[in-house]
């Protein structure tokens, strides 16, 4: 068995961090599931006129709700394949904890994703009822989803700072 070196500590913490970051995947799952459910309901109620627009709006909204999951994936993949902490000078425990913290921060992505999925579902429902209003409903949905993304963006900033910026140099 190899001894515990500083590099091994960083890599181990990065492994935990990458795993933790992916917990955020719960968010897109719940949100997109809700959107899919609402779109299905809309298609069932008004298939002739509202079916196609509702499906379109659901797909667009679900793609936006995926953003947080992709941010988490980026942070996890960077920690696994392009870890900038391994070559950095500094106390190993701090560098390892930075990897862990970056992963933990990304869990926040759950919230925005659930919220965005909820917005997408409601938009699909509205478009199913009144297909003529599609463009204004989509616009409002995108605006709200963009604002809902804000806290997830803050989490991404902190995670990227922990990984790429030498804060305590």
């Amino acid at each position: 068995m190899d001894e515990l070196t500083g590099k091994a500590l960083i890599l181990g913490m990065s492994a935990i961090g990458a795993g933790l970051a992916m917990i955020a995947g719960i968010g897109p799952g719940v949100g997109q599931g809700f959107a899919a459910g609402k779109a299905t309901e809309a298609v069932g109620n008004n298939r002739e006129h509202g079916g196609k627009p509702a499906t379109l709006v659901m797909l667009l909204g679900a793609a936006v709700a995926e953003t947080s999951g992709i941010f988490s994936l980026v942070v996890a993949i960077v920690m696994l394949f392009a870890n900038p902490l391994v070559t950095r000078e500094g106390a190993f425990i701090v560098l390892g904890a930075s990897a862990l913290g970056a992963g933990l921060a990304m869990i926040a992505g759950m919230g925005p994703a659930i919220g965005q999925g909820y917005a997408a579902g409601k938009a699909a429902e509205a478009v199913g009822k009144r297909p003529k209003l599609q463009s204004s409903v989509v616009r409002t949905m995108l605006l709200g989803q963009a604002v809902a993304q804000t806290t997830g963006i803050y989490a991404l900033i902190i995670a990227l700072i922990l990984l790429f910026v030498n804060v305590w140099a």
Binding site: I70, V74, I77, F81, Q149, I153
Partner: peptide, 27 residues
Amino acid sequence: LANPVSLSFRLFGNILGGTIIMGLYYN
């Protein structure tokens, strides 16, 4: 004051995320 921060990082984060994933994929 938080508005410009979230506005700029929303664009930056999305485009950087795509750039990183594509860069890793091409390896």
